[in-house]
Amino acid sequence: MSHLPLDVFKQVVQNTPLISIDLIIKNNAGQVLLGKRNNRPAQGYWFVPGGRIVKDETFNNAFSRLTQIEIGKVYSLSNATFLGPYEHLYSDNLSGVDFTTHYVVLAYLITFNGDLSDLPEDQHNGYRWWDVKTLLTSNNVHDNTKAYFLSSSSLT
């Protein structure tokens, strides 16, 4: 598993779709975990945790790595429910607005009841538990996050 140098990664983003995993995380009260994005794309919006799959990384290894990075606890795919594929299109990219970003996203549902103050802040500068009805009506929650709850009756 390796990460590309920034200049090469920008070329990839400009020319190909990226594959990622998004984590739809619910607590025992049925609320959804969202973090406020630090980085482009979707910067400043409340969004579900997740991240890219890197070359030569299996789905299971990517899932375990991303749950560790995003919530500080390792989960395996056997702990999750696959919700399906989604497509995220953004008018900007990690470095600006000179080209778009295209993600093919694999969405998974997991349950987590950890302490939000322990969550890492590399990708998000805050976390909150949201009721589904509230997140669907908020202008501060990104439309790509709302799409999970509009398309899946098992999430509402």
Rank of each mutant, 00 (worst) to 15 (best):
I19D: 13
D22T: 12
I19M: 09
G51V: 09
N93F: 08
S138N: 04
T111P: 00
S153D: 08
S91T: 12
V74N: 07
Q14K: 15
H142V: 01
N15R: 14
N113Q: 05
L155T: 01
G114V: 06
F47I: 07
G35S: 03
W46K: 05
D98I: 00
W46Q: 05
N93K: 11
T81G: 01
D122I: 12
Y86R: 08
E70W: 07
T156Y: 07
H142I: 04
R128A: 06
N38M: 12
A62D: 08
T81H: 11
N139V: 10
D7Y: 04
L89Q: 12
K26C: 05
W129D: 04
G51S: 10
L106N: 14
R128Q: 14
V12R: 11
R65L: 06
V13A: 07
L116P: 10
L18E: 13
R128N: 08
H88V: 06
H124W: 13
R128S: 05
V141C: 00
D131G: 01
M1C: 02
W130K: 00
L33I: 12
L136E: 00
D118N: 14
E70G: 10
I110W: 02
T101I: 05
P49W: 02
Y75I: 01
P17E: 14
G72L: 09
L116V: 09
D122A: 13
Q43D: 05
Y103I: 03
L34H: 02
G84D: 05
Y90K: 07
D122K: 14
F47C: 04
G126S: 07
T134E: 12
V54L: 15
L116I: 15
Q68W: 06
V32A: 04
R37C: 02
D92P: 08
S91F: 03
L66E: 07
Y127M: 10
I110F: 03
D98W: 00
D7A: 07
I25C: 09
I110G: 04
G50L: 10
H124D: 10
T58K: 11
T111E: 15
G72I: 07
D7Q: 05
P120C: 01
T134W: 00
T101Y: 04
N113I: 04
G35L: 03
E121W: 00
V74Q: 14
Q43G: 06
F47L: 08
T145N: 01
S151C: 08
L4K: 15
Q43S: 12
P17H: 15
Y103R: 03
R65I: 06
W130G: 01
N27T: 08
I110P: 02
N125H: 13
L23S: 13
L135V: 01
S153W: 01
Q11W: 01
D22Y: 03
N28D: 15
Y90L: 08
L89V: 09
S76T: 15
G84P: 06
Q123Y: 15
Y103H: 14
N140L: 11
F9R: 11
L109G: 06
Q68E: 12
Y148L: 09
I71R: 11
K55A: 14
E121V: 11
L18F: 09
Q31A: 01
L4H: 13
R40E: 08
L77K: 11
I25W: 04
A62W: 11
E57L: 13
T134P: 00
Y90S: 13
N60H: 08
E70V: 07
L155R: 04
K55E: 13
K73H: 14
N27K: 06
F59K: 11
N113K: 03
